[in-house]
């Protein structure tokens, strides 16, 4: 078990290094006019040149990357080129907002999709048809379009929810929940039906397995077969779908945060990339990839716990 985790972690570190370098490599091409952009058009040529040296822009790609990576390894992600705010601090204040939206959404999706998917698989009939048709609608409307629709209808027309939200520690839990409601709803509507459909087919696949028939022949109740055996065997497929949705959400939430003016990582990501604030972009990418690696590791661990075959190998 420990070697399993260590192996996964080692693979994660390699992925992290590869992606960091790739991102740095891409950003290298965008850094031509950064110093000028930071100082404004009235700065003199000498000032610009001095700034470039200060930021290390005069150096070649590899030394620059290794200088950044060396600092990153010690936990120093540098400071933003434009606001001079330390990158780590900027991220740590934004990350909880983004993670709250994403984690709350994925929990709702997991619960609702499992219930819907199992009901559709077992009962078939109208509930199955409803899930299938809803899946088409869920797939057809991107989450940000759904968010726009929700804002327009529920916040602007009906005034039931705040149109833009601010999550701060002192705004109180009621306000906090109210400002989360619409963004989470938009994400859940978009994700839940397709997850339900995947869980449905996973459950049907298990229900058709021979061992289910044998369990029935042994006098085990339908309920116990469904909740103890079928659900457990269908769980890895469901987890895979949910983890992929989670990864997708980390990106998709960028647009959602813009719509609801949520102070999460999204705004930071958009600002830093449009301006070419390399330390900040690297910070965003690094944090995102670390989260993805942790999620994948968790999924692997749960799958191992669920499936004794994986556990052994």
């Amino acid at each position: 078990m420990v070697t399993f985790i260590l192996r996964k972690l080692a693979a994660g570190v390699v992925v992290l290094a590869a992606i960091s370098f790739l991102t740095y490599f891409l950003l290298y091409f965008s850094s031509a006019n950064i110093a000028r952009n930071i100082l404004g058009e009235f700065a003199s040529q000498e000032q610009v040149a001095a700034k470039e040296i200060e930021l290390g822009l005069d150096q070649a790609l590899l030394p620059r990357f290794f200088a950044w990576a060396g600092h990153a390894l010690t936990g120093d992600l540098g400071t933003s080129w434009f606001t001079s705010e330390p990158v780590a601090r900027a991220l740590m204040t934004r990350l909880p907002v983004t993670l709250t939206v994403v984690i709350v959404s994925i929990i709702f999706i997991a619960i609702i999709a499992t219930a819907l998917g199992m009901a559709a698989a077992v009962k078939r009939g109208w509930i199955d048809k409803a899930v299938q048709s809803a899946a088409v609608i869920g797939d057809a409307i991107p989450s940000f379009v759904m968010a726009i629709i929700l804002v327009t209808v529920f916040a602007i027309q009906l005034k039931l929810f705040p149109a833009t939200s601010s999550i701060s520690p002192d705004s109180g839990s009621a306000a906090w929940i109210a400002s989360l409601a619409l963004p989470v709803l938009a994400i859940v509507i978009n994700g839940v039906t397709s997850a339900a459909q995947q869980i449905r087919s996973a459950v049907i696949k298990q229900l058709e397995k021979d061992y289910v028939r044998t369990l029935r022949s042994r006098g085990i109740s339908e309920r116990e077969i469904l909740f103890k055996h079928v659900l457990r065997s269908a769980a890895p497929a469901g987890l895979t779908v949910l983890s992929l949705q989670f990864i997708g959400m980390l990106g998709g939430v960028v647009i959602i945060e813009q719509i609801f003016a949520l102070p999460g990582m999204g705004a930071l990501a958009v600002q830093s990339t449009t301006m070419g604030d390399i330390p900040l972009v690297m910070g965003v990418v690094l944090y995102t990839v670390v989260i993805v690696i942790i999620v994948n590791l968790l999924v692997d661990l749960i799958n191992g716990w669920l499936n004794p075959k994986v556990r052994v190998s």
Binding site: V15, A18, I19, T23, L26, L27, Y28, F29, S30, L244, I247, G248, L250, G251, G252, V254, I255, A269, V270, S272, T273, T274, G276, V281, V284, V285, T288, V289, V292, I293, N296
Partner: peptide
């Protein structure tokens, strides 16, 4: 493939936009 699948799409596209 495993690396590509671990990337959140929009973040990558933002980076690409910054570069190109």
């Amino acid at each position: 493939v495993n690396i590509l699948m671990a990337l959140p799409g929009i973040i990558v596209l933002l980076t690409v936009r910054a570069a190109f």
